[in-house]
């Protein structure tokens, strides 16, 4: 059952990824992206990483996609069709992507992944929270603080950049 769900999710991801980058209607592309992100959240659920899946849904599907949709609405008309892509450029890039994909898949299939065989640790919200704020081994307080500063800077920067100046 879980296996089936995984395949469905994997297929959804691949299909909608491709549709995202090929769609000529930009708003639709945004919606396809939303489906990809939702399917990814589904995979996290499947793996029992519920908190991560929730973050994925709220931040990505909820935040980023809405942001993108707003950007689209601010910069283009809804029925605006994007011009078709250059055939040669498309073919070249596709070739490059396929070669890269082949190379990596070749490497991945040639490698025998073995787990460390340990029992699953706790990954409930409490464990995540204490891990985020601990400064011992496997503690993430430093990246946590850095991310905090980064978000603050990004917020201020985004406001400053998007602000309309008098002389514009």
């Amino acid at each position: 059952m879980e296996r089936l769900i995984f395949y469905i999710l994997a297929l959804t991801i691949i299909l909608f990824s491709v549709m995202t980058v090929t769609s000529r209607n930009i708003l639709r592309a945004a919606i396809y992206l939303l489906f990809v992100l939702l399917a990814t959240a589904g995979i996290y659920f499947l793996l029992n990483y519920n908190f991560l899946a929730a973050v994925q849904l709220t931040v990505y599907s909820g935040g980023v996609v809405v942001l993108i949709v707003f950007a689209v609405l601010l910069t283009a008309k809804i029925d605006h069709k994007l011009e078709p892509v250059n055939k040669v450029k498309s073919a070249l890039t596709a070739l490059l992507a396929i070669i890269g994909l082949g190379a990596i898949l070749w490497a991945v299939f040639g490698y025998n992944f073995t787990g460390n065989g340990m029992a699953e640790g706790a990954y409930d919200v409490k464990a995540i929270g204490s891990s985020l704020l601990s400064y011992g081994q496997y503690g993430y307080v430093l990246p946590f603080e850095v991310i905090s500063i980064l978000l603050l800077a990004a917020m201020v920067g985004a406001i400053m950049i998007a602000k309309r100046y008098k002389n514009d």
């Binding site: 991801i13 691949i14 990824s17 491709v18 995202t20 980058v21 930009i26 592309a29 945004a30 992206l33 990809v36 992100l37 990505y60 980023v64 993108i68 950007a71 689209v72 910069t75 283009a76 994007l82 011009e83 892509v85 250059n86 450029k89 498309s90 890039t93 596709a94 490059l96 992507a97 396929i98 890269g100 994909l101 990596i104 898949l105 991945v108």
Partner: peptide, 26 residues
């Protein structure tokens, strides 16, 4: 990996900045 290279393809081929951003998200 498939998703990654689809993103790369989109990043290089699409001309609209927002679609490029979506490729980066992928």
């Amino acid at each position: 990996t498939i998703m990654f290279f689809v993103g790369v393809y989109g990043f290089i081929v699409r001309k609209n900045l927002i679609t490029i951003l979506m490729s980066v998200e992928l």
